[in-house]
């Protein structure tokens, strides 16, 4: 494992920790899209179908369990916790995420490397992850006062896939028998590019020491 991959994983982990911190300590999920969280839970379920059968490393297995467990605890907090669920801005979270699921499933059935259940579900998870942030980005744009934790959450999440792309380039250059797939590269690029606008305003607000606000 190279430094880019590890740093990417740590950013991903950090984003989840920041979100759970906000929810658990502040007892608030204001500004967080439940739809994006539902999509991530679905992404992890479909990607990690091999969690108990395809052992790669202890690190991988533990991280998979952490991502699955954190995704479901976030969903539980947002939907069932008596205090947290009342801070959820349902009216601002209007993205029709079922269309994303449907579109990604159709695409995975049409464009994949191998037509097996495991492989199509894995491909579906790659496509869905690329666009899962969209409901959250739409919600951010509608939120007038984005708190620091929410801004950092999205920033870490965007940085994670960006670092993964550097990891792919590094592996391509250094591994002799390298079999990475173009499907992952394109999806990963789209996923990272979706954050470009957000990154611009995030860095700008940070440099000017202002509160983060996205233009409507």
């Amino acid at each position: 494992m190279n430094i880019f991959r590890f740093a990417g994983d740590m950013m991903h982990l950090l984003s989840v920790v920041v979100l759970l911190l906000k929810i658990h300590k502040m007892k608030s999920c204001a500004g967080i899209s439940l739809k994006t969280q539902e999509l991530y839970a679905l992404v992890f379920i479909c990607r990690y179908l091999d969690i108990f059968t395809g052992f790669i490393s202890l690190y991988n297995t533990i991280m998979k369990i952490v991502f699955l467990a954190s995704a479901f605890s976030i969903l539980w907090y947002m939907r069932s916790h008596k205090v947290v669920r009342q801070t959820y801005d349902k009216d601002q979270d209007t993205f029709r995420h079922y269309f994303l699921i449907l579109a990604c499933m159709v695409l995975a059935l049409l464009v994949h490397h191998k037509f097996t259940f495991r492989e199509v579900m894995w491909t579906f998870s790659i496509y869905l992850e690329a666009v899962a942030i969209l409901p959250q980005l739409v919600m951010l744009q509608r939120t007038r006062n984005i708190d620091n934790l929410t801004g950092n959450y999205v920033f870490f999440l965007g940085t994670y896939r960006g670092l993964y792309m550097l990891n792919w380039v590094y592996r391509y250059l250094t591994e002799v028998h390298y079999h990475h797939r173009w499907l992952t590269w394109i999806s990963g690029f789209i996923q990272t590019a979706l954050y470009a606008d957000f990154f611009y305003y995030y860095v700008k607000s940070w440099r000017n020491n202002e509160k983060l606000q996205l233009p409507a």
Partner: peptide, 10 residues
């Protein structure tokens, strides 16, 4: 080539 590098990633 069944051992794909993207399968050992998260």
């Amino acid at each position: 080539s069944h051992d794909h590098a993207d399968k050992d990633e998260l």
